[in-house]
Amino acid sequence: MHIAVVLKQVPDLVEELEIDSAGTDIDRSFLKMKLNEFDDHALEQAVLLKESAGAQVTALALDSDGVDQVLHSAVARGADKAIKVAAGDGPFASRQAAPALAAAIRSLNVDLVLTGVQAADDVFGQTAPFLAAELGWPHVSVVSGVEPAGSAVRVRQEYSGGRMAVLEVDTPAVVGVQAAPQSPRYVPISRLRQVMAGGPPESVTATAGAAPAGTMVVALAKPEQAGGAEMISGSTDQVAERILALLSERGLLRG
């Protein structure tokens, strides 16, 4: 089985996000980026399949600042190969990214594409279903486990209330990964150095799709209710005292 894993960096949400002067995007000048958490799980899932079923894993990412590092890390974690897809200056919405990714994937002869289920920075939808439509392949998202099953894969799809189903999807297929069966492993630093010494990842060019027609972001802002909570300040002891008083007033102490 040949698996392509699609990787993307997103702003680290623990950091403060500033809005740009136009008021329609985040200010990208001092942004700390990290690998999308769900992509991290998609990569882990791919490497687990490689270990259990002998798959070949290719990591793919659209070219952007810092992408070499992301791809090198993927190889250090177990991907066999990394490919940078140069599609011009982004950032691209998932729907624009899909045709470029699909072109690269078609030339690779893969059986399975894994992406993260969603990315926090894209309001116009999720990549996995758009990519599946481009490729004309079946698709399942919100998946937390993939196993080989002959010319298909078995995936575990999650629903609300803790319900789940196992579905079988003929390959080639596209799967949006929510979580791998185990936590993503760390990048071994010595291995990373070795990979980096091999030079930048292979690059291919592809054409991104047009921006979604008929819709646009007219404003990006902090939520109106921001600071809805009354913030309790002071020393740890003062805060604890205040919380105790709040719980006691409302009859919420045990007993």
Partner: peptide, 23 residues
């Protein structure tokens, strides 16, 4: 915008060529 909605909304957007606004 549920688990199933992720499949269905984006899939139908692609199939119908319509834009999707999520979340």
């Amino acid at each position: 915008s549920t688990s199933t909605g992720i499949d269905v909304a984006a899939g139908a957007a692609a199939a119908s060529g319509r834009p999707l606004v999520a979340y």
